[in-house]
């Protein structure tokens, strides 16, 4: 555990603070869904979902295929709009934002990790990551320097010039995580982040997500993998047929450092 604490501390320094305009205090609600409904034609993918996520929390959403997990994630990420109800993230009603405002919202507040990585084949790993910062107007050199720092910390610095096609699954997902962290998002969303990985690579990604949460990164996981949920999340939300059918606290297992360790890491991150 002590090794992870040291790594978390460095990671915290690299990741730094969220670019969100006002940094929420730990425990403050950053995501609030109220009676969210999403219909695709006749089918309701989400049917009156209400949910709150607080700053620094790690929440796992589980449920059978087609229960609405990814739809819920898309609503919060601003990738899709609810048919009714409200999705408020950092005080912004995501469903009411225009296309451009949604893009800016995603840049500022959201980091997204995908099951199939979604890297651009024609860009090197480093350029894939730097791209996220460059879209916000960060100069190329500065973006690349920051991307390199993340690569160093995620242990893939030697693969920075490789194309996605020659990276292993675990390496690709680390690049995906680095890209998600590039703009210091207030909220990290992960859609089946280990779903396309072998068990060893999956373990590595689990460790990474755990480390991130331990330094205060708010995390929402969508997964089928109970081990991932147990290990990385502090709370489990169960969905079935588009409804929340259960919520559980997950304080056992490997999740969570001691409060002192968390506070140490958090305070280091804020002073970095």
């Amino acid at each position: 555990m002590s090794g992870r604490v040291r790594r978390s501390t460095v990671l915290c320094m690299v990741i730094g603070e969220s670019t969100g305009q006002t940094e929420p205090a730990a425990g403050q609600v950053v995501v609030r869904l109220e009676d969210v409904r999403k219909e695709y034609g006749e089918t309701a993918a989400l049917d009156g979902v209400s949910l709150e996520i607080s700053a620094g929390e790690a929440v796992a959403v589980m449920g059978p295929s087609g229960c609405g997990k990814s739809t819920l994630l898309n609503m919060i990420a601003g990738l899709d709009r609810p048919t009714s109800g409200s999705v408020v993230v950092h005080g912004e009603d995501v469903g009411r934002l225009g296309e451009k405002a949604l893009a800016l919202y995603r840049r500022r507040h959201i980091g997204m990790i995908f099951q199939f990585f979604n890297l651009i084949d024609d860009l090197s790993a480093l350029d894939n990551v730097a791209l996220a910062a460059q879209l916000t107007g960060t100069p190329a050199g500065q973006a690349r320097r920051r991307a390199l720092e993340l690569f160093d910390e995620l242990g893939i610095a030697d693969r920075r010039n490789a194309y996605p096609a020659v990276l292993s699954g675990g390496e690709r997902q680390r690049v995906g995580v680095a890209r998600a962290l590039m703009n210091r998002p207030a909220l990290l969303l992960a859609d089946e982040p280990t779903g396309a990985l072998d068990s060893r690579a999956g373990e590595q990604v689990m460790d990474l997500l755990l480390d991130l949460n331990q330094i205060g990164q708010t995390l929402l996981l969508v997964t089928h993998d109970e081990r991932l949920a147990q290990r990385c999340a502090s709370r489990l939300v169960e969905l079935a047929d588009g409804r929340v059918v259960g919520e559980h606290s997950l304080d056992d297992g490997e999740h969570g450092l001691t409060e002192d360790e968390k506070n140490d890491a958090h305070s280091l991150g804020r002073t970095a």
């Binding site: 451009k100 995603r106 979604n118 996220a132 879209l135 890209r179």
Partner: peptide
Amino acid sequence: RRDLGMLKSIGMTPRQ
């Protein structure tokens, strides 16, 4: 399509 979706997901505006 996948690349464009990803680019939009990390904040590329429709105009961009």
